[in-house]
Amino acid sequence: MEILVLKILISFFIAFTWIPLIKLDCWWVRVFDYPRFQKLSVFATLMIFWMLLGREDAGFWYWTAGIFASMSYLVFLVWPYSILGKKMVQKEPYDPEKGIHLIVGNVFQYNREFEKTLNLIQIKDPDLVFLVETDQTWADALTPLHLTFEHRILLPLENTYGLVLYSKLPFKRQQIHYLINEEIPSLEIDVELRNGQLITIYAIHPAPPVPGESLSSTERDAEILVVGKKSKGNPQPSLVIGDLNDVAWSYTTSLFLKISEMADPRRGRGFYNTFHAKYPFFRWPLDHVFLSKHFGLSKIHVLKSIGSDHFPIELKATLAKQKSTDREKASPEEKKEANEKISNGKKEKS
Rank of each mutant, 00 (worst) to 15 (best):
T274F: 06
E133M: 06
M1P: 10
E348N: 09
A317C: 10
L215N: 10
F32L: 15
W18Y: 15
W63E: 00
V42M: 08
W61K: 01
F76V: 11
D309N: 05
T148D: 15
A320W: 00
Y110C: 06
I123A: 15
W138K: 01
P280Y: 09
V129W: 03
R112S: 11
L155I: 14
L77A: 11
A58E: 12
D127P: 01
I176S: 04
S11H: 10
A222C: 02
S308D: 00
I123D: 15
N119S: 15
D95K: 00
Y178N: 05
V89F: 00
K329W: 14
M262F: 09
N111K: 03
F311R: 01
S250R: 07
W79D: 11
I3A: 04
L297P: 06
S343Y: 10
W63A: 03
F271E: 12
T318H: 01
P237R: 03
S298G: 07
P156E: 02
S331Q: 14
N245P: 08
W284A: 11
K86W: 06
T252A: 08
M71T: 08
Y279R: 07
K168S: 04
S343M: 08
D190T: 01
H151W: 14
Q136T: 06
V78M: 14
K316Q: 15
P80I: 05
V104M: 04
F68D: 10
R267W: 08
A330N: 02
M262N: 12
V302N: 00
R194D: 10
F271W: 10
W138Q: 05
Y62H: 12
F275P: 01
E314R: 04
R112T: 12
Q197R: 11
N344W: 03
F32A: 11
E183H: 06
K98Y: 07
A141W: 07
M47H: 11
E219Y: 02
G105F: 08
E133K: 07
A69L: 13
R327H: 13
S72T: 13
K335N: 14
I300M: 15
K304R: 15
P170D: 04
